[in-house]
Amino acid sequence: MSEQTTSAVTESQARRPEVTTVGPPVPAEMENPVFVVENLDFYYGSHQALRGVNMKIGRNEITALIGPSGCGKTTFLRCLNRLNDLIAGTRVRGRIDFAGKPIYDPSLAAIELRRRIGMVFQKPNPFPKSIYDNIAIAPKVNGMKVNMDDLVEECLTRAALWDEVKGKLKASAFSLSGGQQQRLCIARAIAVKPEVILMDEPASALDPLATIRIEDLMSELKKDYTIVVVTHNMQQAARVSDRTAFFNVDDSQGVRTGVLVEMGTTHQIFTSPTDQRTDDYITGRFG
């Protein structure tokens, strides 16, 4: 048993994920970030889940958040659209600016913010409604003046789902497969014309083929949207993202808290990380 483990580690050390991101390489310094996060602390009750996170997220880039379980990457993602507000007893300290405005400012309406920041979840979560309604509900309640049929077709086409569902738009969203449901959720997110799409391990519940389709879709969508994606899968981060942020669990101060270890272009993180912990993680030595 112990022999096996050792050989697995040696193997994965050799298997440093290859960066194959689509599009021109991003500059090391970003000019016009969508999000600027400064000294973000996050608490669930008395438990601190994130400490001192500083990050900039670039426009029309795909930013991957990677790190071991419990490192706070999903918590961080959910801070960006204030979805953690729904959980009783949570608390935020520090500052997040979205498009130049602090999102935790009391005068800013979270509902308005969430209309500008779409989200795709780990498990596909379509509305218990028809495929058509899944796209149409949010634009309708948000009072968007558009031709709904055109919008539904446009969003489904962009989510690479139109050809599979065009004949059964009135069918229940639950009649679709898991991968199709996830693409429907992406179509639903882009229907309200957000500026950013947050994705929380969008492919982790899908089979490899459906995963590739979602990844292709992300590369396609980044022309128009800023994408922040949490992933457990380092190969996925290396395949699709422009920049990568590595989170880790830190217990140097006596409690286990999530910290941002390092962030850089995906190429830099996967070829020459500056922190030993990042190197250990991406070569599979832990996590």
Binding site: L83, M119, F121, N125, V141, N142, V192, L198
Partner: peptide
């Protein structure tokens, strides 16, 4: 499921719209 309700909230739906559609 919480994740179903969060889907609606993340789209900018109000609590009453979430009740209605989810």
């Amino acid at each position: 499921p919480t994740v179903a309700k969060e889907g609606a909230v993340a789209l900018g739906l109000t609590p009453s719209e979430t009740v209605r559609y989810v």
